[in-house]
Every structure is written in structure tokens, then in C-alpha cells.
């Protein structure tokens, strides 16, 4: 039974990826044939020839990288205030709000003010809009770090002679490293996979990998869409592979993720 459940899970997770892979190399794949009639790499060579796609991928990478770095850094630094603030409960409720809203609703809400501020239609505007989501996620994630154990570590370091700065660098950052890595990956992916905010705030002038993929779909080119979909999957797959290589964390604390 467990074996069957395991196989079902693997199939559910891998089947969409296998289909994308099949379509990206298919010449024709008529229903209900289990495999394409003929294989060819024209989708991939077509993608390579599509000049805009490389630029869109680089743009996605740039925006997602910036969003991840800024949101993680700010979230890490400000999360303690969110935990210790007198209005902490209200603040944490507020931080959950971007998640309660869908990116589409957030985008609609932001569009007008971004337009007035001259941020609409620019990469910076898109990154800022995604940053709201990513920052909220980062703060919520790092709130878990500020528990009694972490404070006890910092207190212990202080009485051993560590200045607040030394305690952060030599104690807090190393023990928070798994969380920081997780936050970087997750906030990167929030931006990397975003479509709605890019479309609404970017006003069609900021082309990313997700908007390009959608363009292929709208144009009815399933093979190009499949190939660009696989490119879109690369960062999370690499992140998962790197994570699988790592020694599992041994620290029996709250950050054993």
C-alpha cells in the first residue's frame, strides 16, 4: 500500500515534467499515443534562435535575484522588531495580508499608484511589487528565529564578551543559515514564477520568462511553451538538487527544516 502510494506520488510529481520534456522534443504527438510519433529538437533550436527569450531569462534572473537578496536581508534584520513590537500581533497580521491577497489583486491594487510614481512598465516597479510579497514571506519566516533559544544563545555570547555585532556574525548568522538559504530560495521563486505582477505592473513592457512562456501558449506553440517551461523549472530543480546533496541539518532546534 505504501509502495503504491509512493509510486502514485512520484507519478503525480514527475508526470507533468515528463510531458513537458516529451512535448519539447516532439515533432507530432497525437492523442492517445503514449510517445511522440517523431522526435526532434526544433523547439530548443527555435528557442535559441528567439533572441528575446535569452534577454527575458536574464531579466527574470536579475529581478528574482534582486528580490531574493533584498527581501531576505530586510526580512532578517526587521523580523525581530515584528516579534518584539508592542503591536506585534497587528503587525504580523498585516504581514500575512499579501498572502491572503492573490498577486492579481495585489497587482490591481498597486497598479495605479505605481503608474503615478512612474514605476509601471519598469523592471524596478515589477521587482518592488514582487518585493512586497517576498518581504512579507521573509519576515514571517524569520519570526520563528526569534524564540527563547536564539535569545539564550545571543545572551550567552554577550556574557562571554561578544559585542552585539560579534554575536550576530559569529552566532546568529551561522545558526540561522538554513533559514537564510531557505528564504533566499523561496523569495527567488516567488519572483521567478510570478506572472500576474509582471503583467500588471510591467504593463507588457517587462518581458520575463513567465510572460514569454504564456505568449507561446497564446500563440498555440505547445513545443516552444514546453521547452521554455523546462527552462523555467531549472532554478528550483537546481536548488532541490543542491539541497539533496547537503548533509541533513543536525541541529535539534526550530530551524531543522
Amino acid at each position: 500500500m505504501r509502495r503504491a502510494a509512493g509510486i502514485a506520488l512520484w507519478a503525480a510529481f514527475l508526470a507533468p515534467v515528463a510531458l513537458l520534456l516529451g512535448w519539447s522534443f516532439a515533432w507530432r504527438w497525437p492523442w492517445p499515443a503514449p510517445l511522440p510519433e517523431r522526435w526532434q529538437a526544433s523547439a530548443w533550436t527555435g528557442l535559441a534562435a528567439t533572441g528575446g527569450l535569452g534577454a527575458a531569462a536574464l531579466r527574470s534572473l536579475g529581478i528574482a535575484g534582486a528580490v531574493a537578496l533584498v527581501a531576505t536581508s530586510l526580512g532578517f534584520v526587521t523580523s525581530r522588531s515584528a516579534v518584539e513590537a508592542r503591536s506585534g500581533v497587528a503587525l504580523r497580521w498585516l504581514l500575512h495580508l499579501p498572502f491572503a491577497l492573490s498577486p492579481v489583486v495585489l497587482g490591481v491594487g498597486l497598479e495605479y499608484s505605481f503608474l503615478r510614481a512612474g514605476l509601471a512598465g519598469h523592471m524596478v516597479g515589477v521587482a518592488l511589487a514582487q518585493g512586497i510579497l517576498a518581504y512579507a514571506y521573509a519576515v514571517i519566516l524569520f519570526c520563528g528565529l526569534w524564540n527563547a533559544r536564539t535569545r539564550a544563545y545571543l545572551d550567552g555570547a554577550a556574557t562571554l564578551g561578544a559585542t552585539p555585532r560579534q554575536a550576530w556574525i559569529r552566532v546568529l548568522l551561522p545558526i540561522a543559515r538554513p533559514l537564510v538559504v531557505l528564504c533566499l530560495v523561496q523569495t527567488f521563486l516567488i519572483s521567478w514564477f510570478d506572472y500576474a505582477l509582471v503583467l500588471l505592473i510591467g504593463e507588457g513592457r517587462v518581458a520575463t520568462l513567465t510572460t514569454s512562456l504564456y505568449q507561446f501558449l497564446l500563440a498555440g506553440d505547445l513545443r516552444l511553451a514546453a521547452a521554455s517551461g523546462l527552462i523555467l523549472l531549472l532554478p528550483p530543480v537546481i536548488a532541490l538538487a543542491v539541497r539533496a546533496q547537503r548533509r541533513p541539518p543536525t541541529f535539534a532546534g526550530e530551524w531543522d527544516l
Partner: peptide, 15 residues
């Protein structure tokens, strides 16, 4: 202060 506080739980730095 030069005063070291030793907690009930020996909180050794895990890293």
C-alpha cells in the same frame, strides 16, 4: 561586565 552567565541548559553553539 566580565560576568559570565551559565544557563541551566548547556547552550553550546551548534555550528
Amino acid at each position: 561586565r566580565g560576568i559570565v552567565y551559565l544557563n541551566q541548559e548547556p547552550l553550546l553553539f551548534p555550528h
